[in-house]
Design a binder for these strands. Sequence first.
DNA 1: CGCCTGATTGACGCGGTTCAACCTCAGTGG
DNA 2: CCACTGAGGTTGAACCGCGTCAATCAGGCG
Lengths: 247, 247
Amino acid sequence: MLAPDLARKASCEDCPIRHRAVCAHCEGDELQVLEGMKSYRTYTPGEPIVWAGDDFNFVASVVTGVAAMSQTMEDGRRQMVGLLLPSDFLGRPGRAHAAFDVTAATSVTLCRFERRPFEALLRETPAVGQRLLEMTLDELDAAREWMLLLGRKTAREKISSLLAILARREASLSQQIPGGEIAFDLQITREAMADYLGLTIETVSRQLTALRRDGVIVLTGSRHVTVPDYDNLAAEAGDDADGTQLT
Amino acid sequence: MLAPDLARKASCEDCPIRHRAVCAHCEGDELQVLEGMKSYRTYTPGEPIVWAGDDFNFVASVVTGVAAMSQTMEDGRRQMVGLLLPSDFLGRPGRAHAAFDVTAATSVTLCRFERRPFEALLRETPAVGQRLLEMTLDELDAAREWMLLLGRKTAREKISSLLAILARREASLSQQIPGGEIAFDLQITREAMADYLGLTIETVSRQLTALRRDGVIVLTGSRHVTVPDYDNLAAEAGDDADGTQLT
DNA sequence: CGCCTGATTGACGCGGTTCAACCTCAGTGG
DNA sequence: CCACTGAGGTTGAACCGCGTCAATCAGGCG
């Protein structure tokens, strides 16, 4: 299950998430300690990482890929409660059981630390705790923004919001011209979109079709999206122009 | 605007939230520092504490009362994203502007610290940062639980969930007999309930009536609720019996 | 080719919103 | 003392957005 290319410990210095992850503020000695504690593991798409209620004796940073955190009701209704992207932190120091299901959405590589030693590290190395606090506060803000989407937005606005987020990320990653058209691939299925947005796959499909019909987006195949006019899409999302932006 | 009885600084030793708030882990010297930094302020019911986007140069602990954190769309749709109860922390170290509106739901007294000195304290006093991290992680879990409610639960389940939370809190505060009936007052209006649950006031009213008709609750006046059988109410909330519980 | 998973589309119905009337109660002032 | 007022709450009727159920389509793979 170990990815061959990452099974031998890559150096933290070369790590792609070096300056965004929980270890971002660490230097020299501290980084050495982390280097000694870490181990990599790669999960295949769809593979469960933990189930809610399970013993959960490690914490980890996502190095590559996407993992989904979700909750399921007895009758099968499911709600995604977080998307874990590279540099995001997974796990809960001070808690021995997982609160949510976590599943690999794509192929995912984690940089893992045993929970106990990591908790000790938190006590002794303020830099890690401070960075974790920053990251957790950001996640809390993002979760609260998402609550507005889930509680008050229409299906069309929900889809538009999600596409706008993905378009913004694509634009920032690829340094595209502001105002120009943005194109990206949906990495996730309609089902994952529905779980994330609190909708059904049928509604997701219908609203995508409607947005295409109205010229807000261009769909090539079912997974490739082109946004001719980002402002137009943002207006459909119902976010006030000056307001905060979902991450 | 200062509450006369709290305007002179009450001692941290006697503080009702002494061992639950952000200062919980502090001892001796550290407490002295906080004691010197703090100032109290009381807000009247309905009074805004901050608006989203405003300069926000303090952080605070709620000492007494209830404050509501919420987000509003251009057209007036509103979603509450958090309820701040005594000992809860308000504010975001490292950020100069508020992300959400915060309003006093009842009369609220805050124990406030200027943001800059508090940030310095966070760097120098690990105990505060560690406690804040714990609290933030708990809030994040609660926000994620709420996402399931907003995204997937029916109106009846939403109301039942809220009542179950309030009943649990009442039972734990008043040490009631497990299995016995639980009675409590709704401290908030139908409008606040609707904003919290992502519903309209009409739907809130109708579902409360339906739960009363079905014997799940007894309503005395419009604000006093008696729960004859907690397990029955919990079943209506749709939470799986073994699962995690909203706080 | 057949099979399976993911996605689209249509028909239909329900749950929750919308709009509106009305009720209750606590002030408030004549 | 009672009329007036306004906020909070309840109830009814009609509408419609989205879920449900079901049929069909497209693409990948043995």
